[in-house]
Design a binder for these strands. Structure first.
Lengths: 251, 251
DNA sequence: ACTTGACCTTGACGTTACGTAAAGGTTTAC
DNA sequence: GTAAACCTTTACGTAACGTCAAGGTCAAGT
């Protein structure tokens, strides 16, 4: 049987370019060339190509394959064992790489959550400022200048112990919120407990709690992606769920 | 601090060519170029290069690194996680390759030892023929035609059981020979036992044992690479060692 | 002032195993 | 006769540089 490039290519599942390339580098020469300059391959070439494909599929490079098949005293198993060594080395390198990538990921994630926290500390300040801007006048009218100023000073003047308490409260809020979400009901007991925890948490920052301010804050949480990003860490949609719970809570 | 290509290269442990290449592809442009056309890098470029090296060491390609560092909304951990996926895929492919190579090795080894055996079966025939050619006349004179013919017929007429016995004897010979080689002394007891085993083995093929024929055969073993290849499987140099032992043995 | 040696520049080829045109000749089928 | 399907060679592109080659610049020593 005689084959042209395309026929042989189809037989072996490779492109004609590949066959021409193999001819070019002397890896697989056609049996002969016909009067029109076409490459003609025979049975022996089919066999040789099978061999080539075999080694190629094992990831051996063409130069090595050529050496293997050209050398008269060719030790197939030795070549394969050498090749195997190379592969094992490659895998070891890959493993090391993966390890490093893993390390980097967890490291940057730690950094991320650190900076997330820092950012949120900033957000809390915004929260206080916001409250001051929106309700400051009203509160000042109600309670007088001094008490309000004292309130704003509260955050900055918190002791470490107090700060730890707030953090604990926040952790509790997160745990409670997650459990509440599993029930799926923002009017349920767990969700209402979460809203209460949020109120308590808020009272560390605001001296004068009001339902309107709480509701306004809840809306702001859901609208500002800096807040949603922080609360949605609990579970996607947690911010909105908390808002709903709070709105029910204040009624 | 300002750096030329070489200074920066030394600082980062990379070649000047690499820095020029990074400039060329727009990955790391120098801070400015001085009046003589020299590339001058500053502190910001050092930082950027550190970043580049970091990702490069994790095996990320330069194009991706460029994208990562150019994009304003770049999620480092997501990129790393994507990269990790790619690495895991690569490793899976490598594992599959190694598996296939392993399979091929053991397969070809089985084939090899099979064909080795077949070849040796052929060699044994040569052995008999050789004996016939060299000593045939002499033996025929001594013992008459019929006995010699019977001898040559022996090999072909061997029962399976007998054949298994010969194989066992050969295995024993190999084991013994290996042990003998560890002593290093072809005149020692183990080596002489090996020579005796070889005589017994030989007597399965030859009806009429003679010291001269045994010695001649030993020499032939060492000279013919088809035999050395077979016996040297025990250990390199085993054929010569056996020859030496036999020559001492027949004295 | 001159030279030497260390530095810098751009340009260009080589590496692997082909993919992908482009430009042009051949064969086959209608 | 012609169009489609084949074949050919030539050559550029890929990733990330290494390695010359040819030539300009700078600091130091004579």
């Amino acid at each position: 049987m005689e084959y042209t490039v395309q026929k042989l290519g189809q037989l072996a599942g490779i492109s004609t370019r590949t066959l021409r390339y193999y001819d070019e580098i002397g890896l697989l020469k056609p049996a002969h060339i016909n009067s029109s300059g076409y490459r003609i391959y025979g049975a022996a070439e089919v066999d040789r190509l099978q061999q080539i494909m075999f080694y190629r599929e094992l990831g051996v490079n063409l130069d090595s394959i050529k050496d293997m098949m050209t050398s008269p005293t060719f030790d197939g198993t030795k070549a394969l064992r050498d090749h195997r060594e190379k592969l094992l080395e490659k895998r070891a390198q890959l493993d090391a790489l993966i390890n490093n990538v893993d390390k980097s990921i967890s490291q940057t994630e730690r950094k991320m959550s650190m900076s997330d926290k820092e950012k949120f500390e900033g957000f809390k300040q915004i929260l206080v400022d916001n409250n001051e801007q929106k309700y400051g006048k009203e509160i000042r009218q109600k309670y007088g200048e001094d008490t309000v100023n004292a309130s704003n000073a509260k955050v900055k003047g918190m002791t470490e112990e107090q700060y730890a308490d707030v953090q604990k409260l926040e952790d509790q809020l997160f745990i409670n919120l997650k459990a509440a979400m599993e029930t799926g009901d923002p009017a349920g007991e767990l969700a209402q407990q979460a809203a209460d925890l949020h109120k308590q948490w808020l009272c560390f920052y605001w001296d004068h709690y009001s339902k309107e301010a709480h509701a306004g804050l809840a809306e702001m949480y859901a609208a500002d992606e800096r807040f949603t990003a922080y609360y949605d860490k609990v579970q996607p949609g947690a911010t909105e769920f908390l808002r709903d719970a709070i709105i029910i809570y204040i009624k």
